[in-house]
Nucleic acid binder design. Structure first.
Ligand SMILES: NC(=O)c1ccc[n+]([C@@H]2O[C@H](COP(=O)([O-])OP(=O)(O)OC[C@H]3O[C@@H](n4cnc5c(N)ncnc54)[C@H](O)[C@@H]3O)[C@@H](O)[C@H]2O)c1
Ligand SMILES: NC(=O)c1ccc[n+]([C@@H]2O[C@H](COP(=O)([O-])OP(=O)(O)OC[C@H]3O[C@@H](n4cnc5c(N)ncnc54)[C@H](O)[C@@H]3O)[C@@H](O)[C@H]2O)c1
Lengths: 220, 220
DNA sequence: TTATTCATGTGAAATGCTTCACAAGAAATT
DNA sequence: AATTTCTTGTGAAGCATTTCACATGAATAA
């Protein structure tokens, strides 16, 4: 809050992903009883260079102590703040099928601040049913309920053929970010953030690697 | 096969991911009745520059016709060959819980050459049960059955606490690639390829973007 | 107190990736 | 047949990211 991020618009996607990795590893270090950790140790666990770790952090401030390293609890809190996971995010899942219901039952999300509070489907057998304490709403009320509840993030797990309609609806309802599992290129206005989760792509990467004996520098 | 890839070890991860995207879009173009496509049109659909599309393809050969573009069917076949999805991959899923069973019921994978042929779990209620025509095997037989069946890829959907044991087993059994859903840094020998699917990371990216008003060049 | 050790934070260099710009070649047009 | 139009394929330039290398400063030990 107090100290503004320097040039925060230019932070790379890779840096943000690495911050997520540091956060998870810091949680682990905390459990293991470490009080401090060096960029060297953190780098070793992530298979990165110590310079990379320090550079990533340096975009956001100076969090370490020379000669000692970083305070585990403090750095974890700081990264949580940077990532915005020190707050309560209201999330809805649209399409309570195979993947959708798997996500709903995943407890780890709420521990990271992502609280699934609304579920939607168009299947009469699913509407009204209870998943982990949440009753599935009729998709007809999508826009209205999302807006009323102040949902900020939406996870799309409907068939690709209807995904764009869902997006158009939730965008109108004021949603700020969408995580999409349908294998299709969705259109969103520039003020809405969109990420795609594509499992086929990862399998294809592995296939390519095997067939071509691929040995890249960073096999993330 | 005949024409060897030029310096194929140095192809970037991004290029390979984009090849997957081109492949999917070419399938769509084919359905829409297009016979040819230009780098300009392909780029527009992926929100890339035409130069990027041409450069990506140029690493693997010359597939286009000047003044005309690329033959949709031909280019799709060529990319399929490059990615290694023009063949039959034997895949096993380890851990038939929420995510694992969602993956098993996903038909799209087999259309891309990834055939899930073995399922494993340690839960007596699940062992012997039938998922989409496949009977769940006892995890005790993991190494033996993977080796016997010649499974080359494995998807890990067990709790993080036991994921490394599964990896060690399947590595011994000769598996070449692993797609891991457990939120943990797994160790594999250098001849085995590993990719991690991490949904929390994507939600965290969205959280960061909202909180910081992030506007990167490439929001993939 | 002073010396030594350790590890950060950061400009600068090195490396990697994307875009530019244009020659070359194929198709369509006159 | 010649000309125009179109789009590829690719060195080179431009930009972005990673790594190097070291001055700086804190902690620890003597
Ligand atoms: N299952 C997987 O492992 C997997 C993997 C990768 C991608 N995906 C993608 O995720 C999406 C969901 O996959 P799935 O396997 O869970 O499918 P699914 O058919 O099990 O689930 C889809 C759900 O969406 C609901 N739905 C359909 N039309 C709707 C509409 N108009 N409004 C509201 N709800 C509607 C259905 O009732 C169903 O509950 C698909 O786009 C799929 O391609 C799935
Ligand atoms: N469900 C999600 O949406 C989600 C999202 C992201 C990541 N993940 C990760 O995916 C993994 C699976 O998640 P899930 O929600 O499907 O959990 P789950 O508990 O539903 O499934 C885990 C399965 O693994 C089996 N298992 C446990 N120990 C085993 C062993 N030693 N050998 C063989 N099988 C064993 C269990 O019997 C169960 O069927 C976890 O690591 C989780 O963190 C899940």
């Amino acid at each position: 809050m107090s100290s503004e991020l320097p040039d925060k618009k230019r932070i790379s996607e890779s840096t943000i992903h690495r911050l997520s990795m540091y956060f998870r590893t810091l949680s682990l270090l905390q459990k293991e009883g470490y009080e401090t950790v060096s960029s060297k140790e953190l780098a070793k666990r992530e298979k990165l260079t110590p310079a990379q770790v320090r550079k990533d952090l340096s975009f956001f401030g100076s969090f370490g102590t020379r000669g000692l390293g970083y305070d585990v609890v403090e750095l974890k809190a700081k990264i949580g703040e940077i990532l915005g996971i020190d707050r309560h995010w209201k999330v809805a899942v649209i399409g309570i099928g195979n993947i959708g219901s798997a996500l709903v039952s995943y407890k780890e999300f709420s521990r990271q601040g992502f609280h699934i509070e609304k579920l939607f489907d168009n299947d009469q057998r699913k509407i009204g049913s209870n998943h982990k304490g949440i009753v599935v709403s009729d998709i007809k009320n999508l826009e209205k309920e999302i807006a009323e509840d102040g949902i900020e993030m939406v996870i799309i797990t409907v068939p690709a053929t209807v995904a764009q309609y869902m997006v158009d609806d939730v965008v109108r309802a004021g949603v700020k970010a969408i995580l999409n599992f349908a294998p299709i290129n969705l259109k969103v206005p520039s003020h809405v953030y969109l990420r795609n989760e594509n499992m086929s792509m990862e399998l294809e990467y592995l296939s390519f690697a095997i067939v071509n004996n691929h040995t890249p520098k960073n096999m993330k």
